[in-house]
Design a protein around this nucleic acid. Structure first.
Lengths: 146, 146
DNA sequence: TATTGTTATACTCTATAACTATA
DNA sequence: TATAGTTATAGAGTATAACAATA
């Protein structure tokens, strides 16, 4: 068997193993986040946090939902005091969204819980295993971006 | 600074980095799966595939939904010809679920797409990076299980 | 009586189509 | 006319409560 075939087979096996672990870890972390908001709401709030001063249309495009769906999500988050709608400086059709202090705090708490859960699991690994994951982390980061 | 403090800080940083990459990879893989079924339907079908001859109650418990919700999901999957409901051998109250050939094929196709996407990303890494991920894979597997 | 599964009903999230205000 | 956002309405997925069949 030639080298290319061997590499390809190995890579498919690696992909299969990583797919299962990544999916399961993601599911478990989601379960640890605390359930004050739905995944939809957390997603929208997180996008506003990352790109401040988004319009509803931009947010809908970013979250890959239609504008009317985002209208409802925004209405709920605004009613809960987690984000604010303010007039666009130059275009009176548009609206600008920003996080409130409460929204910011809630997002940070959500992240904190997930990371605390993961950190606890990491603490149960040997130093060698932790070292391997430290090497792997930037690679996974690149993999997730590209 | 003592060693313990350094390790702890390092671990929190590692947890933060892994949380972001894992969440993003999971989201991207999900988007690659092909959208013939919803996440709910894929989840239920996958559980039946992993533990054949499940009852609706067991499946609902496994997927962490209430029995009436699973009744609807099962009805849809049965109507689509992806699983079958047959009488329980000894308890006439119960029902036994099994995958059809079409359900099995659909699940395998879904997995194949996600893994093909991931394998393609892996192919863009250097051999050294791939080697690190091969070492990391069993650790992530354990992390996701515990 | 207790358990398994289903039906009835309501709430959330999603969509498409139609509408309002503004450019 | 075109664009940004909202309102109207409908379909899928979830839940709780009530029910039927069986143990």
């Amino acid at each position: 068997m030639n080298m290319q075939t061997s590499q390809t087979r190995s890579r498919a096996g690696l992909a299969a193993a990583l797919r299962v672990s990544i999916s399961r870890l993601s599911r478990r972390m989601r379960a640890e986040g605390g359930h004050s908001l739905s995944a939809t709401q957390i997603g929208a709030l997180g996008a506003v946090a990352r790109h401040d001063a988004l319009t509803p249309g931009e947010l809908a495009a970013h979250e890959k939902v239609q504008p009317p769906s985002m209208t409802r999500t925004i209405a709920r988050l605004e009613a809960d005091g987690l984000l604010t709608r303010s007039p666009h400086p130059t275009d009176r059709r548009q609206v600008v969204l920003s996080l409130t202090a409460a929204g910011d705090k809630l997002l940070k708490e959500e992240r904190r819980r997930k990371e605390a859960w993961l950190a606890q699991r990491l603490a149960e690994l040997t130093p060698e295993e932790q070292s391997i994951l430290r090497q792997a982390a930037p690679i996974l980061e690149r993999l997730s971006h590209g």
